[in-house]
Deep mutational scan, measured.
Amino acid sequence: TSSHKLRLYERDDYRGLMSELTDDCACVPELFRLPEIYSLHVLEGCWVLYEMPNYRGRQYLLRPGDYRRYHDWGGADAKVGSLRRVTDL
């Protein structure tokens, strides 16, 4: 099985509160109590970021690497509604 891990930060450049995720999350704002995510670091696996909860809205593919600001993943703003692991490519 492949492993997945990413870290979410409330501010750009990996500042502020950090939360780690290793499984799908249908509602990021509810789980982490963060209305917006300004940076993230994908440590393992690929993920799909959705701008709205319950895997809706615009989708962004996140490969392992650094995303210091939301425009690094192509986002128009810092809204992160849900995240899902990519298990098949």
Rank of each mutant, 00 (worst) to 15 (best):
Y70Q: 08
Y60L: 07
A76Y: 12
R69F: 09
Y9S: 02
P53F: 04
G75I: 09
Y70E: 08
D72R: 08
V48K: 08
P35D: 14
R85F: 00
W73P: 04
G74D: 09
D23E: 11
L6V: 12
P35S: 13
Y9A: 00
L17Y: 13
R69P: 02
E51M: 02
P53R: 07
P35A: 15
G74A: 08
T87R: 11
V42H: 02
S3T: 11
D23I: 12
L8T: 01
C27G: 05
S82M: 06
R7E: 07
G75A: 15
R69T: 14
R68T: 07
L89R: 15
L17N: 15
G74W: 03
R85A: 06
D72Y: 08
R7K: 05
V42A: 01
L31H: 11
D23F: 10
V42P: 00
P29E: 13
R63L: 09
R58E: 08
P64G: 14
S19P: 02
L8I: 12
H41F: 04
W47A: 01
V28Y: 02
G65M: 00
T1N: 11
H41D: 05
S19L: 14
H41N: 11
C25L: 01
H71E: 15
D12V: 12
E51I: 06
E44Q: 10
K5P: 00
G45Q: 03
E36T: 14
Y14D: 06
A76F: 06
V80G: 03
P64A: 04
L40S: 01
L40A: 08
Q59R: 11
R56T: 14
D23L: 08
R7A: 04
T87N: 15
A78H: 06
E10M: 04
N54K: 08
R69H: 14
R33F: 11
C27M: 12
V48D: 10
G75M: 00
E30M: 06
T87A: 12
L40E: 00
L61V: 11
D13V: 01
V28H: 00
L43V: 13
Y9N: 00
S3V: 05
D77E: 12
D12G: 11
R11Q: 14
Q59L: 02
